[in-house]
Design a protein around this nucleic acid. Structure first.
Lengths: 208, 208
DNA sequence: GTCTATAGCGTGATAGAC
DNA sequence: GTCTATCACGCTATAGAC
């Protein structure tokens, strides 16, 4: 049996023409998703979730087994959203290198951090409920970028002596590290500056 | 008057032939430094600090005004240590590009994260006590890397159309992002893989 | 300089009425 | 499905004896 309750909110549209986004459960999820981005998992107290969602104490523990369960469900939705966004950037409607550029040029909120990457430092991600969505997203991103870079080599756009997987990880890291620099310097622009550095390097490895 | 109490432990050797590293205050600092690396600031409770250091409750609040003060002092020491390590890698005893390679090739503990970068996601770094040492380190690193890359361009090692500051931020980001990937994947090797990607890109931007 | 006792507060969850 | 009351616990800090 396929329990509709466990389908991420962002996927409802695939199954229902009128997605119910204003149920108490959904409001709890939206509150959790925004708090995970703003303050992370450990600092996201039930109190804050209830304040932001407008839900009552009873509702949280009725719809979810607890904080970890709510966060895990929220992370599943975030995973879907980020994965869709990544796949859109890498859509094969332009040349492989052009897709990579589109990915690097994405708008990013440096001062807030990556919605998944920022949770990576917390001790609590040792728990599979929290770790799995994060690990799956990065694993998918690595795979898709590697494949796109491999295509770029095959098509003669990129120097053939470059290891596509190493470069894929390097590019993913630049994005994640750009967030770190942004927060360290208290200046969201560092995410953009770092991406620009990556674009320049990529350019010099590109065969004209 | 220059208060010796505020000289980072790692600098004692410069002033005294027999550095006192076993005082209760120093034990508290060492415990805080290791905990900041392992669990971060917010999860570093006074209880854990006292357990690890062997000090008693009274000592903590005698030597420091509280948790924030202790952490701030510990961060000052970490800042000095990381800065020294960076400067050693960039020592001008080899060619500029070779110095950059030495920096990228440093041994790193991917599964633990950067001792300063990992604190970047916590809400508490809004406080200057915690933010300043982190911001100073990254600012210094950006400056030193930029200068080294500029030298590489001047000496004809690096393509002149590359913006040294953008690239400096890109390289710093790759290191920081490598830590993020390592923790996301639960595999410390990603820090090395990302650095390898950076080295390859740098190679292709280097004039042979 | 270190000890013990204690305090106020927030967290994360449970119980049971409605 | 939501409400209020309540709980045990850990956090961070203070007080005052020694």
């Amino acid at each position: 049996m396929f329990d509709l309750k466990y389908i991420p909110t962002s996927m409802y549209c695939m199954y229902s023409p009128t997605p119910v986004k204003d149920s108490t459960r959904d409001q709890l999820l939206e509150a959790a998703k925004s708090l995970l981005w703003e303050v992370g998992y450990e600092s996201m107290s039930p109190r804050k979730i209830l304040e932001r969602s407008g839900a009552g104490h009873g509702s949280l523990y009725h719809h979810f087994s607890g904080k970890a369960d709510l966060a895990g469900t929220a992370l599943l939705e975030i995973e879907v959203e980020l994965t869709e966004s990544l796949d859109r950037a890498l859509l094969a409607d332009v040349s492989p290198i052009e897709r990579i550029r589109r990915f690097l040029n994405k708008k990013r909120q440096g001062n807030k951090g990556c919605r998944l990457g920022r949770l990576t430092q917390e001790a609590s991600i040792a728990s599979p409920t929290l770790r799995d969505p994060i690990a799956r997203y990065f694993s998918h991103a690595e795979k898709q970028l590697t494949q796109t870079l491999q295509e770029a080599i095959t098509s003669g756009e990129l120097q053939p002596d470059i290891n596509p997987r190493d470069l894929a990880c390097g590019l993913l890291s630049i994005i994640q590290g750009g967030y770190v620099l942004s927060r360290a310097n208290g200046n969201g622009k560092y995410a953009t500056i770092s991406a620009r550095g990556a674009l320049a390097l990529l350019d010099s490895a590109t065969l004209k």
